[in-house]
Design a protein around this nucleic acid. Structure first.
Lengths: 290, 290
DNA sequence: CACTTTGTGCAACAAATGTTTCATGGCCGA
DNA sequence: TCGGCCATGAAACATTTGTTGCACAAAGTG
C-alpha cells in the first residue's frame, strides 16, 4: 500500500475517504468540511448536525488509523494550533552568504512584515477609534522603541485635535502624569516584550482612574493589556532581524488615527485645514515647484 | 468607567481581571494567554497545566457574567471561528456605510500597506547599510511625522553604536548641527511631501560637507534626494486615509538597522548585549513571569 | 437456499466532564 | 477578641462524553 501523506490528519482523512463505507464517507466529508467544529464541539453534537450516528465518528477515526475519535480530534486540534504561524513554511533558511546576503535579508524582512499586516484584526481598531472619538482627552504612552509609535500617533491626532491630545512623559522620564487621568478620557499604551515598568504603571493608573484604556501590544497577555478596554495586537517577532518589527504597530497607529479622523467628520476636517494653513503660513514646507 | 467593549469575551475577561480575587486573576490570565487551549482542552486539563483548582475556572466564568465555564468556552470558541478571520478575498466591498464602514477602512488600509512593502527596492537599503557601517559617525534627520521614523532609527542604531549616532535637532528646532558634518560621516534624512525646509537644509549641508547622504523619501525627485548617495524609496500615498503612510519608511528604517547590525558582526553583537545588560540591571523591564 | 460477512443504528456502559457543596483558613470590621 | 465574610481547595454530584456490545438488514459466497 502506498504510504499516505502523514503531513496532516485532514489529508490522511481525505486520502482514505474513497475506500470507506458509504456512511463513514459522509461523516468523513462532514469532518473535513467542518474541521473547526470537529475540534471544538462534542461528538454527539456533530452527529446531530451531520445527521449521523455518534458511533460513526469513532468508527471513522479507527478506520483511518487512530485509536479513537479522541485521538483524531487531538491531531486535528494540534494541526490547527495558531502558534505555528510560520507561513514561510519550507523556506530554505540555509545560511546566506555572498554579496547578496544582505539583500536577501532585506527582502525576507519586508515580505514577512507585509504578510503580518493583513493579520491584524481590524474590528478592535475601529472600536478603539470610537473610544478615542468619544474621549474628552487623549493620553499617549510608549517607551524605548515604542516611543516612535507614540510620537507618530501624538502628531497625527494633534493635527485635528490639538488641545486634547498629550504624550505621557513628554517633559521627561519622571513626568508620568499618572494622577492626571480622569474618567471620560482615553489612555493609549504601546509596548511589546520585554515590557517597561513605566508603561505598565501608566496602564494601571489609567484603569484605576476609570479612563478608557487602549493597549497596542504584541500579545493579549501583555501586562498593560490587563484591564484594557481595547487591545490592538500586532506581530512584533514575525520578521527576521535583531529587533522586533514595529511596522505593525505603526500601521495600527495610523489606522487608528485615520478612523478617528473620519469619525470626527467636518469638524475634524476643518481643524486639520486650519493646522495645515498655519504650517503653510510659517513656511515650514518647501513650496511645490511646477 | 468607560463603556466596556462587549465585542470579544477575551476583552470582557481582561476588563474584569483587575477587580477579581487573586486566584481568579491567575486563572484569568492563563485563559487569556492560552485561549486556544481553553477552547480545545478540558477544564481539568487546563487546571492541571495552570496549577489551579478546576473549580476556579467555573468561578471565573461566573465572575465575568457567564452561566458557567461551558458558556465562556463557547463564547471563546465562537470568537475564534475562522470564517470571520478571513476577511480577505470574498469580502463584501459594497457597503461603504453603516457600522462596518470603519472596519472596512482599516482593512483596506492594512492591505494596501502590506501590498506596498514588497515593492520597496531592497538593493539600495543593503548598500546604504554598508555606508552606515563604514561611517565614523551617523546623523539622523526627520521632522514632523517623520520624526518618529528618525527616532526609531536613532534608538535602534544606538543599541549597538551608542557613541556614533546622533539625532539632528535633538536639542531643539534650531539645533541643526549643520556645521558639524564631516567627510567620512553619514547623514540620514527622512521626509516626504510636503518637504520641510529644515530637512532640505540638512541634506544640503551634508552634501557640502562631503558626508555620505542617505535619503529616505517618497520620491526620487524629493529635494533632499538631490545629491544623495543613497535614495531609499517608499510609497507614502498608497493607502487610504487622511495621512500618508509611514509603514514603508519604518520598514526601511528597521531593515537598514538590521543589515547594519549584521555587518557589524560580533563587535556589534557584543555592544548590543552590553546595552541589554545595562537596561536589565536598571530593571527597566518587567521580569518574565513563569 | 443457507451461511457468512459487512455495514449500520440503538442502547447500555464506564470514564471523564463541569458543577456544586462543604469545610477550612485568612481577613477585616466591630 | 469575636463574628461575619470571602476566598480557596477537596470531594461528591449529576451530566455528558466517547466507546462498545448487540441486533438486524443487506450484500456476497458456496
Amino acid at each position: 500500500m502506498a504510504e499516505p501523506a502523514k503531513s496532516s490528519p485532514l489529508s490522511e482523512l481525505r486520502i482514505a475517504l474513497p475506500s470507506l463505507p458509504m456512511r463513514l464517507q459522509e461523516v468523513g466529508r462532514f469532518v473535513a468540511a467542518n474541521d473547526y467544529d470537529a475540534t471544538t464541539r462534542s461528538m454527539r453534537d456533530l452527529a446531530a448536525v451531520a445527521g449521523a450516528d455518534p458511533a460513526a465518528f469513532t468508527r471513522l477515526a479507527k478506520a483511518i488509523g487512530y485509536s479513537g475519535w479522541d485521538e483524531l480530534r487531538a491531531a486535528l486540534t494540534e494541526a490547527r494550533r495558531p502558534s505555528q504561524i510560520a507561513p514561510f513554511s519550507g523556506r530554505a533558511r540555509s545560511r546566506r552568504h555572498g554579496p547578496n546576503a544582505d539583500v536577501a535579508l532585506v527582502t525576507d524582512k519586508l515580505e514577512a512584515e507585509a504578510a503580518g499586516l493583513p493579520r491584524i484584526p481590524a474590528q478592535p481598531i475601529a472600536e478603539a477609534a470610537r473610544a478615542l472619538h468619544d474621549a474628552k482627552r487623549i493620553w499617549i504612552t510608549g517607551y524605548r522603541s515604542c516611543r516612535s509609535v507614540a510620537e507618530l500617533l501624538n502628531y497625527e491626532l494633534r493635527l485635528f485635535r490639538p488641545e486634547q491630545v498629550q504624550l505621557v512623559g513628554a517633559s521627561g522620564p519622571d513626568d508620568l502624569d499618572l494622577g492626571a487621568f480622569r474618567p471620560g478620557e482615553a489612555v493609549i499604551v504601546i509596548g511589546f516584550m520585554p515590557y517597561t515598568h513605566a508603561s505598565v504603571r501608566v496602564a494601571q493608573a489609567a484603569y484605576r482612574a476609570g479612563a478608557a484604556l487602549i493597549a497596542i501590544a504584541d500579545s493579549s497577555s501583555a501586562p498593560m493589556a490587563e484591564g484594557a478596554d481595547h487591545v490592538l495586537l500586532f506581530e512584533a517577532a514575525s520578521s527576521p532581524g535583531f529587533f522586533p518589527s514595529l511596522t505593525g504597530a505603526i500601521a495600527i497607529a495610523q489606522s487608528l488615527a485615520a478612523v478617528t479622523f473620519s469619525l470626527g467628520g467636518t469638524a475634524a476636517k476643518k481643524r486639520l485645514e486650519n493646522t495645515e494653513a498655519r504650517l503653510a503660513a510659517a513656511s515650514t514646507y518647501v513650496s511645490e515647484k511646477g
